[in-house]
């Protein structure tokens, strides 16, 4: 709500502080992790199911598809972990399963290519501004 009223001095100071934080960069909650910008870790159900969390590499996919294909046609929301994807939906041809079906891209039996994260890695957009600002991801995903 507060962001609807720009101009208040404290907010300017906050923004300035945030910018400084970003400029010095690299000091986040991510420890020694230095994966690619925009790598998305999805750990909604993986840890609980004894699987490694999923890592989605944006860079790899944007070389092959424009944003629109997944984010408009396939219905992926712009929110890490906010799409409630599970294997049933994928096998049913939704979300990742629209391409990862053995036809356009390799199919679901290659579990370890997606489920490749270190166990316990929380859902996140790696290297994102929010992550760098040390705001912990909320339950249900990070915006």
């Amino acid at each position: 709500m507060t962001i609807r009223h720009p101009g208040a001095s404290w907010r300017g100071a906050l923004a300035a502080a945030l910018v400084v934080t970003i400029c010095i960069g690299g000091i986040g909650t991510s420890g020694d992790a230095r994966a690619e910008y925009a790598d998305v870790v999805i750990n909604n159900y993986s840890d609980a199911a004894g699987m490694r969390p999923v890592i989605f590499p944006h860079w790899f996919h944007r070389i092959r598809f424009r944003c629109k294909v997944c984010h408009a046609d396939l219905g992926f929301q712009f929110k890490a972990g906010g799409n409630e994807i599970n294997m049933v939906k994928i096998i049913d041809g939704q979300f990742c399963g629209a391409c990862h079906n053995g036809d356009i891209a390799w199919s679901v039996e290659n579990c370890n290519l997606c489920h490749s994260g270190k166990p316990g890695t929380p859902t996140q957009v790696h290297e994102s501004t929010i992550q760098k600002l040390a705001i912990q991801p909320q339950a249900g995903g990070q915006q």
């Binding site: 962001i3 907010r11 910018v19 960069g25 712009f78 915006q143």
Partner: peptide, 24 residues
Amino acid sequence: ISMAAILLGQKCGVCHGKVAFPVS
């Protein structure tokens, strides 16, 4: 639109700072 909103992942910040070039 304000930089505060963008830094918090809203407006332009939905993509810029996550996947498109960052706010730096």
